[in-house]
């Protein structure tokens, strides 16, 4: 999985490309967790190019959400691909996140 980060003054953007599974969690954690700080406590994760998330990856997202909320921030999931959207729904984890559409697609 490719992880690309963008740093803005008050928020962080993370773009993921590929399959987000247990193999990728250590790399995700080391690259993304340090981005959440008291000054930049909102993190956007672009999931538009993620084809699959397994349970370990979902747990990693939940862990990051808890860390962000501890700093009065949150994790925002942007443009989840169809399978990721469905997986979030059937695992009942969609309600744990703000999920946004940045594409303006009809």
């Amino acid at each position: 999985m490719i992880i690309r980060t963008e740093i803005e003054p008050t928020r962080r953007l993370v773009h993921l490309v590929g399959r987000f599974d247990a193999h990728e969690c250590p790399g995700f954690r080391s690259a993304v967790t340090p981005l959440v700080t008291a000054e930049a406590n909102v993190i956007h994760i672009d999931l538009s190019q993620v084809a699959f998330v397994d349970s370990t990856a979902l747990a990693e997202l939940v862990r990051l959400q808890k860390a962000a909320r501890a700093l009065d921030g949150e994790v925002i999931l942007a443009d989840p691909s169809d399978p990721v959207r469905v997986i979030l729904e059937i695992t009942a984890l969609a309600e744990m996140f703000t999920i946004i559409d940045t594409t303006g697609a009809p």
Binding site: F52, S55, D82, P83, V86, I87, E89, I90, T91
Partner: peptide, 16 residues
């Protein structure tokens, strides 16, 4: 631990 993400991925792809 694994069945729901697998069902989600398969259901999305096969339905499409």
């Amino acid at each position: 631990w694994r069945i729901l993400p697998t069902i989600g991925a398969i259901a999305t792809h096969m339905s499409a």
